[in-house]
Design a protein around this nucleic acid. Sequence first.
DNA 1: ATGGACGGTATCCTTTTCGACACTATAGGC
DNA 2: GCCTATAGTGTCGAAAAGGATACCGTCCAT
Lengths: 135, 135
Amino acid sequence: MSRPRAKLTNKFPGCPVESTLSFIDGKWKGVILYHLMLEGTLRFNELRRRVPSVTQRMLTKQLRELEEAELLSRTVFAVVPPRVDYALTRRGESLRPVIMALKAWGDENVLCDGERMVLKPLESPPVSRSKFEPA
Amino acid sequence: MSRPRAKLTNKFPGCPVESTLSFIDGKWKGVILYHLMLEGTLRFNELRRRVPSVTQRMLTKQLRELEEAELLSRTVFAVVPPRVDYALTRRGESLRPVIMALKAWGDENVLCDGERMVLKPLESPPVSRSKFEPA
DNA sequence: ATGGACGGTATCCTTTTCGACACTATAGGC
DNA sequence: GCCTATAGTGTCGAAAAGGATACCGTCCAT
């Protein structure tokens, strides 16, 4: 959650959009929330395996910020080796429609295979074909 | 659209979430899209008035990035004083469910009035009340 | 002639973010 | 005695994002 963005959360309309973005902004928060929505509770290294490119340090940081935002809960078990569980809170769970909307748009519009991100061509353009023109 | 974020758009699942975020990330993109969704075509200074805290430079930058991402179109009229219209493309329009999901969550969960952003308390906790207990 | 509206650029600077790398502690297996 | 797994922390530096300020040219109204 970037402070400067939070600062502009003022009266102007459209603020709800920006403030919601400020919660899931941060390079890894979206994916983290997504995986927790798919799989429920996950441990630190389980998350790490699901998001291979995140570094340990960044994952920790993002998880801490999500915890501070009350979107997920962190449960430490006093065992060795250590065990820490991460799970969505009810508020985190309430983000499901948002995350799923993000995923749906990405699925429809972006090709994620290669090295870079590619926009898919738009499908079924909104042609209003004349009645007299054959399909 | 931040390049580093785009770089990580790799094969791992959850990528669609991140790549969609990369399109609307940038401190002002969410609001800009939101206003264009509400009001249709807007001119530069009309947008500026709707987002009072954005500087001219930043507004220009964000609009250029949105244009490059094919989410909005920029139409210059060769008149004086200059006139430039911004409108959603079809792809930009396709983000409507996403932006509206963001707005809905913000409306439900964040208080935007004062100087800072405040989480609203959760309402209607998921109590499973006994049949024998009166409401 | 002065100032404003319009839609920007150019320059400089600070803040924020992100990643690399090294380091920690403990228990169990070989 | 050494390696592994677990879940981190600390420090450093590069890069990106964002903000402040000044400037441009033309037309119109005062």
